[in-house]
Design a protein around this nucleic acid. Structure first.
Length: 451
RNA sequence: GGAGGGGUGGCCGAGCGGUUUAAGGCGACGGUCUUGAAAACCGUUGACCGUUCACGCGGUCCGGGAGUUCGAAUCUCCCCCCCUCCGCCA
């Protein structure tokens, strides 16, 4: 029941296959800081144990030792080569014989090539190891083995008391004729829906409502491509591990985004941002596409788990020292949507055993669904710290300081539209089968009820 | 799909095998001059890896990859991206 927005990050850890993006520029594909891992293996190992995952750092450290000595040796040889090449150039300019030096350098060239080959080899191995390491949980992330040990942080709103049996959203929708699952199955397949009439309008009203609310808080609206290349999927961490969760096109190859996080975070891939531009805040509406492989039998009915769904996302690029304040603010912004819609919800701090691969801390927002008598995930707000930024190479420069640092990236749904439709239908259903529309949504919806 | 042009430092732009350790310009920063500013003049001006307590030193980077060579921004091959025109289509 927990997994929705971050289903991707929570898929079982697969073997890393040494994926190499078909790329026209080099991607930095480390995740945790290699130097940090090399120098504090015991500490990292302990931190990752909180996720119930064991890693053997021995082979990695051995490889790194080899790699560094190769780097040193080939750097020295190259230094020598550069110097001698200059001498050769000088001799030739004076029309003197340089054949002895040239002969010497032939051997050096061979040796350098050999070392480069071995260096590349060790780099690849080290990289594979680092790629498989998940992010280190933040100290405030509760330690726990799985979703049963997530911690409820706060609760808002009182679930409504019904004087009639509360229906599931698909039953409500059927009576109203606003969602057509059967015809969706005909034209596409299972896990698709046709929104119709007031249903389609509700979907559209929610998008606009959420985007307007987010932009009023300083988020810049973007409408990005929903097909992206392999580099972008690698930058945010969907590739190589979670390829099975993605839809893709055949020729040419593009990936359909599973969340707006992918194109929006990648907006600044391989950029160095100026300090005064931060924080950068984006909000984006996009359709999202997920294979939902491995979730057979889960939420097969209704709108909860679809191959295609709409979502409004929020993404932030911030300075490291403020990222946890920004996470609280981001979560509050997502909560604000639920409060304005007057939908009861609770906020869960995911425990170390349940947070996503790239996340250091995650809050899930769970909305009350009377039809199921349960709270269900409707938003997931995460701080990735520098984990994604390192991978996607997004840095910033402090004004007046030399050098660069990685930004911290955060994102959260605000909100998943389909699940918001579910929540409205179930929470606002009336005895006569109609559904009233929350006050805040009426200007967007253009009516005060459905039916 | 067809034809052509192009990818060089924050930006513009030269370079087409060895005084390029990437010319020159713009911008930015520091200084001189000035009551202050402008102008002028002088200087500085990236990223990454390794090494060092530090100053520094070394290496790599001219779209990406492979090759030729003692030596590649410069030559060869493959790939990617951008632009222009034609065709086709929304």
């Amino acid at each position: 029941m927990q997994r929705f927005v971050h289903a991707l990050e929570c898929a079982p850890v697969l073997a890393v296959t040494g994926y190499v993006a078909g790329t026209h520029y080099a991607i930095i594909i480390t995740m945790l800081d290699p130097k940090l891992v090399r120098e504090n293996p015991e500490k990292i190992k302990q931190e990752l144990q909180k996720r119930n995952q064991e890693f053997d750092f021995g082979p990695f450290l051995e490889i790194e030792k080899q790699r560094l000595s190769l780097v040193r040796e080939s750097d020295e040889l190259r230094e020598n080569r550069n110097k001698v090449s200059e001498e050769i150039a000088a001799l030739k300019r004076r029309k003197q014989d340089a054949s002895t030096l040239i002969e010497q350098m032939q051997g050096v060239a061979t040796r350098i090539k050999e070392l480069e080959e071995r260096q590349k080899n060790t780099e690849q191995k080290a990289r594979e190891f680092l790629l498989a390491l998940p992010n280190i949980p933040h100290e405030s992330t509760p330690v726990g083995k799985d979703e049963t040990e997530n911690v409820e942080v706060r609760k808002w709103g009182q679930p409504r008391e019904f004087d009639f049996p509360a229906l599931n959203h698909w039953d409500i929708a059927e009576v109203l004729g606003i969602i057509d699952f059967d015809r969706a199955a005909k034209i596409a397949g299972a896990r698709f829906a046709v929104m119709r009439g007031a249903g389609a309008r509700l979907e559209r009203a929610l998008m606009n409502f959420m985007l307007d609310l987010n932009t009023s808080k300083g988020y810049t609206e973007v409408f990005p491509p929903i097909l992206v290349n392999a580099e972008s999927m690698t930058g945010t961490g969907q590739l190589p591990k979670f390829e099975m969760e993605l839809f893709k096109t055949a020729d040419p190859l593009f990936y359909l985004i599973p969340t707006a996080e992918v194109p929006v975070t990648n907006l600044h891939r391989q950029e160095i941002l100026e300090e005064e531009k931060l924080p950068i805040k984006y909000t984006a509406y996009t359709p999202c596409f997920r294979r939902e492989a491995g979730s057979y039998g889960k939420d097969t009915r209704g709108l909860i788990r679809q191959h295609q769904f709409n979502k409004v996302e929020m993404v932030k690029f911030v300075k490291p020292e403020v990222s946890y304040n920004e996470l609280e603010a981001l979560t509050n912004d997502a909560e604000d949507i639920l409060r304005k819609l007057e939908l009861p919800y609770r906020v869960m701090a995911l425990c170390t055993g349940d947070i996503g691969f790239s996340s250091a801390k995650t809050y899930d927002l769970e909305v009350w669904l009377p039809g199921q008598g349960k709270y269900r995930e409707i938003s997931s707000c995460s701080n990735f710290e520098d984990f994604q930024a390192r991978r996607a190479d997004i840095r910033f420069r402090r004004t007046g300081k030399k050098g660069t640092e990685y930004v911290h990236t955060l994102n959260g749904s605000g909100l998943a539209i389909g699940r918001t439709v579910v929540a409205i239908l179930e929470n606002y259903q009336q005895k006569d089968g109609t559904v009233t529309i929350p006050d805040a949504l009426r200007p967007y919806f253009g009516a005060d009820k459905i039916g």
